[in-house]
Simulated assay, not measured.
Amino acid sequence: MLTRNAYSLADLSLSAVFRRKWPSIYEALQDSRPQQQKLMQLYIKQMPTQSRPLLAGDHTAWSRPDAVTLQERTIEHNSATVPGNKPITIGQGYSTIAWIPEDSGSWALPLRHERISSWENPIQKATWQLQQVCEHLPTRPISVWDSEYGCAPFVLKTANIRADILVRLRSNLCLWGAPPPYSGKGRPRKHGEKFKLNEPSTWSQATQSIKLNHSKLGRVKVSLWSNLHFRKTATRPMSLIRVERLNEQGNLRVSKPNGTKKSRNPCGLSSLQLFL
């Protein structure tokens, strides 16, 4: 009654008669247990329908090594460790799927942000979240994922989800091409030639390759390979995209893709891959 322009709980807590301030606001949110499914549907209604939405999924670790009474602590990967130590920590893991509304900038709308329990793994949680989001989207989205999800289990679990997936691959992985035609003898082959990402001698001829000038990256070459698969996903063919930055003479200028901090690729093989 005393706060005329209270558009949120934060505005209400600034009222002169609201003595408890911020702590009670957090306590109220914790006790209210808002329905995540309804919140997600409300967020989706704010998204425009003129174009395909871009979703981003990731697994984030929250390090809590000293919170010995915290329930459900798990072993999490942590890259910010002391040199010489193992990149792990004790804490909690969270899985997030967010809508990316802009081509540039860091603003995003989290559609689902949930704890990964001790009986789940990041791939299981991300698959379930992606399924929940796609069931309420009016158009087929494009979702982007880090190299943690560039594996056969993620491909198999997302096979029936109505979404296109763009995921980064580690350079030490091995893919397989399409099998040759059946010879009529014995069991039909499931795999073709081996395609090792860190051995260019095993690469087949690219299906398509283009060169273009990017406003920020300069001269860029993009190559596409079709009908590749993991050994355990022979029934799920996919396409591989390689991005190279070139100098003015057309030679390789950068040994790995710009901004891919987790990519360890001496051959400049980008870990971008589009599942169709």
Results as ranks from 00 to 15, higher is better:
M238Y: 06
P101G: 04
I25P: 03
S117Y: 07
E76I: 11
R219I: 05
F195Q: 08
R140I: 07
Y7H: 14
W99D: 10
F154L: 05
V68Q: 11
D146T: 04
P179D: 02
I116Q: 12
G105C: 04
L224N: 00
T89I: 05
L111F: 01
S215F: 13
E114L: 15
P257S: 15
R187S: 04
R4Y: 15
S171Y: 10
K125R: 13
I100L: 14
R170I: 08
C267A: 14
L70W: 02
W225S: 01
V17A: 13
W203L: 00
A67R: 00
A80R: 03
D31C: 13
M1S: 10
S223T: 11
S209H: 01
S79L: 15
T127R: 00
P257K: 03
I88H: 07
R245P: 05
S204R: 11
Q273T: 15
T96C: 13
S226L: 08
L130I: 14
Q37A: 07
V222R: 01
R189S: 01
G57T: 00
L42T: 11
V68A: 15
V254M: 07
R189C: 02
T3W: 15
P257N: 13
E199H: 09
I44K: 06
L9W: 01
Q131F: 15
S271I: 11
N121Q: 03
T81P: 04
I161W: 08
Q41K: 06
A108F: 07
R52V: 12
N85Q: 13
L274G: 00
A152C: 03
E76P: 00
K261A: 07
P87L: 06
T207N: 01
E72T: 14
P266Q: 13
F275M: 13
A108L: 03
K261R: 08
I142N: 09
P266D: 07
W203E: 00
T260L: 13
